[in-house]
Simulated assay, not measured.
Amino acid sequence: MTSPAKTAPYPLTWLYAPGDRPGVVAKALTSGADVVIVDLEDAVAPDRKDYAREATADLLSEPEPPVPVHVRVNALGTPPAAQDLETLAALPGLSGLRLPKVTSAEQIIHLAQTTPPTDPGAPPLHALLESALGIERAHAIASAHPSLHGISLGEADLRADLGVRGDAGLDWCRSRVVVAARAAGLPPPAQSIHPDIRDLEGLAASCAHGRTLGFLGRAAIHPRQLPVIERAYLPTEAELEQAETIIKAGAANQGAQALADGSFVDTAVVATAQRTLSLARRA
């Protein structure tokens, strides 16, 4: 499916907004986020689910929102999730469905085969892995169906499931989902949210760590987090200079070579440099 709104070549910021607060969703659409995720799950109280779904349907009835809009539906296998999918999946303003607490490839296949299609096909699916079982089956989930366009972690639920206290306890799971996405030919995952909206220094440090693990971009829960995430994932001046040097060297000599500073250049290094320049151009 072609998104009804123009998607950034490398989305870096994914902003959650509660589906039962249309005013907040409207602000999110003009916040500068690359993608807005309307949340019908954790952010909405049980007695507000129907209203959130109706408000989101009104939003998605318009075919060209300012930025791509994804919807995080309710927990799979529940009546609210079935209602979410039936009501929203075929609407023209929808750019993707985010599926919480995915634990098997069969869930993805079933949804891809039964979800009402958009024009010209099934809406893109994005799986959230939030349990030990989901992590163990990460590659099977990531490669389950062509309609699956991405996987990422839901770290709050995963932390609770594993009984992990320190942040470092999740690093193996983070690397696992990065590798699974790459092995399945999916884009690099975006990081899970940083829950303290006041802790911008901690957010920046966490983003820097996520970047070293192979993540690309991050989900946010407040607009003030967006510039921090974008700065963390955009290339530095030094990285840009190095990328330009690598690409010039690769153009001049197609084989593997060593640069004057001792760094090694081959096809894989050139590809990484090209992505660095592509990220810089989005700024």
Rank of each mutant, 00 (worst) to 15 (best):
T2H: 13
P4D: 09
T7D: 02
A8I: 01
Y10G: 04
Y10I: 05
Y10S: 05
L12W: 02
T13R: 01
Y16Q: 01
A17S: 01
G19W: 00
G19A: 00
D20V: 03
P22I: 01
V24D: 08
V24Y: 07
L29E: 04
G32R: 03
A33H: 00
V36F: 00
V38H: 07
D39S: 03
L40D: 02
E41V: 03
E41Y: 01
A45N: 12
A45L: 14
D50E: 07
D50V: 08
Y51I: 12
E54K: 11
A57H: 09
D58R: 15
S61K: 13
E64C: 13
E64G: 12
V67F: 05
P68V: 01
H70S: 10
V73K: 01
A75M: 01
P79H: 02
P80E: 01
A82F: 01
D84V: 02
D84M: 00
L85S: 02
L91Y: 07
R98E: 09
K101L: 03
K101Y: 02
I108H: 04
I108A: 06
I109D: 12
T114S: 05
T115K: 11
P116D: 06
T118I: 13
T118S: 14
P120E: 11
A127Y: 05
A127V: 07
A127H: 06
E130V: 04
S131Y: 03
L133P: 08
I135A: 07
A140E: 14
H145R: 15
P146G: 10
E155P: 07
D157E: 02
A160T: 02
D161R: 01
D161M: 04
R165H: 14
R165D: 13
G169L: 05
G169Q: 05
R176P: 02
R176Q: 00
R176D: 03
V177K: 00
V177Y: 00
V177F: 00
V177Q: 01
A180S: 01
L186T: 04
P187F: 04
P187H: 03
P189I: 04
P189D: 03
S192F: 06
S192W: 07
S192D: 08
I197G: 09
L203A: 09
A204L: 14
A204K: 15
C207H: 14
A208P: 13
A208E: 15
H209Q: 14
G210S: 08
G214I: 12
F215N: 08
G217V: 02
R218N: 05
R218Y: 05
A219E: 10
I221S: 07
H222L: 04
P223A: 00
R224P: 08
L226I: 06
P227F: 08
V228I: 11
I229P: 05
R231W: 07
Y233W: 08
A238M: 09
A238H: 07
L240G: 08
Q242K: 11
Q242S: 10
E244Q: 09
T245C: 13
T245S: 14
K248T: 15
A249L: 09
G250V: 11
A251Q: 14
A256E: 12
L259D: 10
L259G: 12
A260V: 09
A260E: 09
S263L: 13
F264W: 14
T267K: 11
T267C: 11
V270E: 14
A271E: 15
T272S: 15
T272V: 15
Q274S: 10
Q274Y: 10
